[in-house]
Design a protein around this nucleic acid. Structure first.
Lengths: 198, 198
DNA sequence: TTAATATTGTAACGTTCGGTACAAAAATAG
DNA sequence: CTATTTTTGTACCGAACGTTACAATATTAA
């Protein structure tokens, strides 16, 4: 027994997906509600009836980006293969996002963290949660590497994960800002070397 | 013999300095020309007579940020003290900018790189130039550390500098986005340890 | 002093902003 | 069927957007 009244003729998640890419490309302040209507195909009536405000739609877009992103990232870190292979693949995945993505270039979560975390505590919460989860997954794989001896010289998994986390985010920022592939390769090499030794 | 006509009653660089902070706080899209007039004390006539457009003022603001920033940064990297002390001080300087700055929090150059580098080739150029100069200064100090033996195990200065560069920018982004001091300390430790050994 | 010139503050320009009002449309419940 | 409910597209709201126009102002050159 479904609800009374005219049914919606769109999928909530599909709209959030599209809006996510619009915000990702143009930023929060840089895109208008009209842009969102154009890209999603919704009229303002539907858009405001469903989401209430631009800010609320943005939060849902960032939340969705976080959810799909953390799944992809942990899947890579927990996949088969050596620790070294998985970490290199992780960086490579980020590099594809920055240089070859059919989605917008760069990382929406970074943009949201810098543009909106200070203005919107909920956005801040999503970003912080994502980083905590990602860091935890990194600590796990570092522990594995230390246990098996793949990572030489005892250092704490927390320190290793913190380094890899920061280097990863710097990598993404530098890639997006400069589109410099040579630098990207050097960062990948420098990061891998710092963990696995010369 | 000065020019004919009514003289300006403001200093060009002072205005750029103020505008820099306004853009830094609110972002390019997030601040209006009225915001810039309010903060600088200039009327729209003067502002447009002097700079021509919001975009042009933004470029000058980013350029000025770059100039003052690269001086500060290279001064730290080239100061007296051990390589380790200088690198730790460099990270600490960034941390102060992110947590305790009386200026706006975070780094305008990162914001500019992410928000405007894709839209404005001149901004892209400033950001890329800054990063190249900073990386060169980092390579120099890494060479010194390798030469004196302060940095153990031979790795290339380029790889070391690339790692430090990316970790530094990730550090800044994570600090600004999450305001998490514990994480910041862990990143500092992880980064220093990865260069100087356990 | 007067002519020329540059800067100033203010008042607008047309456009776009985020958001709302509301009637037409499309479904279910009875 | 009719009544009710929900979504839809469109027209519109006042405010703010980046930018321009321009007369008043303040200076120097002659």
């Amino acid at each position: 027994m479904s609800k009374r009244g005219r049914p919606r003729d769109f999928e909530h998640t599909s709209i959030v997906d599209i809006a996510m890419k619009t915000f990702w490309t143009k930023g929060y302040e840089g895109c208008s509600t009209q842009d969102l209507c154009n890209d999603t195909g919704l009229g303002k009536g539907s858009l405001y009836n469903t989401f209430g405000s631009k800010q609320e739609l943005y939060k849902q877009a960032v939340e969705r980006y976080h959810e799909t992103g953390i799944k992809e990232q942990t899947a890579i870190l927990e996949s088969t293969g050596s620790v070294k292979e998985r970490l290199r693949y992780f960086l490579n995945w980020g590099m594809v996002e920055d240089f070859e993505s059919t989605s917008p270039k760069g990382c929406l979560l970074i943009n949201a963290g810098l543009e909106r975390a200070n203005e919107d505590p909920i956005v801040e919460g999503i970003v912080s949660r994502h980083i905590e989860l990602l860091k935890a997954a990194m600590e796990k794989i570092m522990e594995e590497g230390l246990r098996t001896g793949e990572i030489p010289r005892q250092r704490s998994a927390v320190d290793l994960a913190s380094l890899f986390l920061s280097s990863y985010y710097g990598f993404r920022v530098l890639n997006t800002s400069t589109q410099n592939r040579t630098l990207a390769e050097q960062i990948m090499n420098g990061t891998m070397e710092s963990i696995f030794g010369a």
